[in-house]
Amino acid sequence: MIGITNGAFIALIALGYTLVYGIIELINFAHGDLFMLGTFVCLSTLTLLGFSTEVGTTGTPWFALLLAMLAAMIFCGLLNVLAERIAYRPLRRAPRLAPLISAIGVSFIFVNIGLFWQGPTPRRFPDLLPQYDFMSQLFGFTTLIRFTFKDLFVLALAIPLMLGLAWVIRSTRMGKAMRAVAQDSEMAQQMGIDVNRVIAFTFLLGGVLAGAASLMYGLYNNNTVFTLGFTAGLKAFTAAVLGGIGNVNGAALGGFVLGLLSALTVTYAGGQWENVGVFSLLVIILVFKPTGLLGQETGEKA
């Protein structure tokens, strides 16, 4: 189960990469670091509300968790929009390499903000969810497979978020505008769509999902560190590529596949093989299906 749950964080972050790539063909290198800052916002909010890093004994403070998640979602959403406005929009018509380098720059800025904010050592994230394993306590199984309350918590948040995103893209006016801009931004503009607004909205969505993922990650793993964005970002980016970058369903699928695979590698081959397993799969997929699992054939645009 740890695989599926990890897959859920990865999928949420991967969606942020794929949404942005889908619409402006930019690999937003700073996205993982945005997620890292999200975990810090959660941590600070919880500390501010009086839930320190000690294990909670008085039950789960749902309201505080909700506040922390909303704070991280709003923070990450707005910060992503700000980064787009300052660092990417002015380079919209520049060669593709320029915004890419700008994204790497934003990534460095975020990492250093994180370093300045919470220091270089890993920070403990309060353990506020009940320790409850449905498998052993409800059914009496004591196998490798566990399904804890934490797993349930993460999935119960992540899956509705993904379904919500799918609905926004499929059915709302803004979602349709997003798809139109992704396919042909010049024609979208001819339809009367304000392309800049749609792109800003896409960054907002990606940031909000990263913010939500950050609370889940913190509560699940009970730690965070300023370099978290690099590892989490790399995995999520891999998931996005695995599923077919630019494809929203693909990113979600890629996240879960990647989470499961890394859990399986850790269980059966040992922790040191985790990244080997993950990236071997990536290489294999890219060799045999370069567009990713659900990738679009690129000839379609013409």
Binding site: K176, R179, A180, Q183, D184, M191, G192
Partner: peptide
């Protein structure tokens, strides 16, 4: 993006429909 609101619609060269919609 405001020009269409002033009553000018454009069916461009190469059609450029939204093929995935």
């Amino acid at each position: 993006n405001e020009i269409v609101r002033l009553g000018v619609a454009h069916s461009p060269e190469g059609r450029r429909i939204f093929s995935r919609m």
